[in-house]
Design a protein around this nucleic acid. Sequence first.
DNA 1: ACAGATTGGCTAGCGCTGCTAGAATTCCCG
DNA 2: CGGGAATTCTAGCAGCGCTAGCCAATCTGT
Lengths: 200, 200
Amino acid sequence: MSIQTRRERERAERERLIVTAARELAEAEGWDAVTTRRLAAEIEYSQPVLYSHFKGKGAIMAAVAVQGCADLAQEMRTARTAVKGTRKALAAVGEAYTTFGRRRPALYDAMFTHAVDLPFATPDAPAALQEAFGELVRAVEPIAAPGDDVGLLTETYWAGLHGLVTLVRSGRLPEEAHEQRLALLIGHFTAGMGAGAEAD
Amino acid sequence: MSIQTRRERERAERERLIVTAARELAEAEGWDAVTTRRLAAEIEYSQPVLYSHFKGKGAIMAAVAVQGCADLAQEMRTARTAVKGTRKALAAVGEAYTTFGRRRPALYDAMFTHAVDLPFATPDAPAALQEAFGELVRAVEPIAAPGDDVGLLTETYWAGLHGLVTLVRSGRLPEEAHEQRLALLIGHFTAGMGAGAEAD
DNA sequence: ACAGATTGGCTAGCGCTGCTAGAATTCCCG
DNA sequence: CGGGAATTCTAGCAGCGCTAGCCAATCTGT
């Protein structure tokens, strides 16, 4: 039994190594540079080893994406709990989200841009995904009007943030006015709130 | 001179043929199916002919994207002028935009998702791009508050629409509640308007 | 402790991609 | 009708994701 567990442990560690190498390579040189040959060289094994861990390159990217979601969730939580007030919390989370997307573009692409067959909006989505979405929900929920569906409202806010990130990153929108656009988005989502709800 | 012009005319026609074939193939089977070999077979020429017209596959996709922008601009204009009232106009354009994105996903990807080196937010952007954005501006401008920068507000609205389209299309958001999310987005963008501005 | 079974990794290769050099053909003009 | 220019095609390069089949190291049963 000890031998079995040791092997499983080593195998799990190698799997972690693959995912880490893929993420680092992608963040350093973009996903185009992440080829199975290059990745195999990076982990100092031959190509077929990758396929004994993952079904293919897409599955490796999916694993990186899940890891990235955990990172994003943590950054959003930190941002949200660092400020006081519902309006500020929504802004902080929005800021954290877009900053993440612009600071770690390759990771962001794996998570939200590239086609990747992960279950997303279902109960059997990976925990990290649900955590990240949950952070958004916690920020949006306080600004929802009485009759609003919080889930749908969160998804809509998410879409706004995602649009800003992707359009800026792909050069469709100039980078410089990003903060102003983000402020506009947040402003419109908090416009319906009661005026005296908080002391700014 | 007559011969020269005839050749140029034939050449221009073949270029149109390439772009059309690329668009149709992409819309029928996705961009992965649009290989240079396949495209060459489709137009009944050999591969290198493509490279005498375009710098590479990316340039062909860019040409398709520009053509798509013209289509989108027209559909948005039709939608906008078909209704009366600023709020309804904004909704109609948003609806037209997202419908376009979901009805012609391959075209939409070439325009707004895939990396393509087209000048976007500059004066030397292709006319079709500026037209499409101009249609958005015309719909957003009436709902802008006095101090607002209309351009930035339009970009923000665009980002919201783009986020909705891409997240739904990639399976990150369930398709069914799309209309409700769109209504939420539009609602928040028109929330600041004076109540009696129009008769619904 | 040793023979046989099993696991696991590697070499080599398939079919495909975007793209291009150089041969071959076609066309125009004198 | 022949020479020169423009144009198109054949053939191939390097690299991609992925996999079949061999080979060595390891574990198991006696």
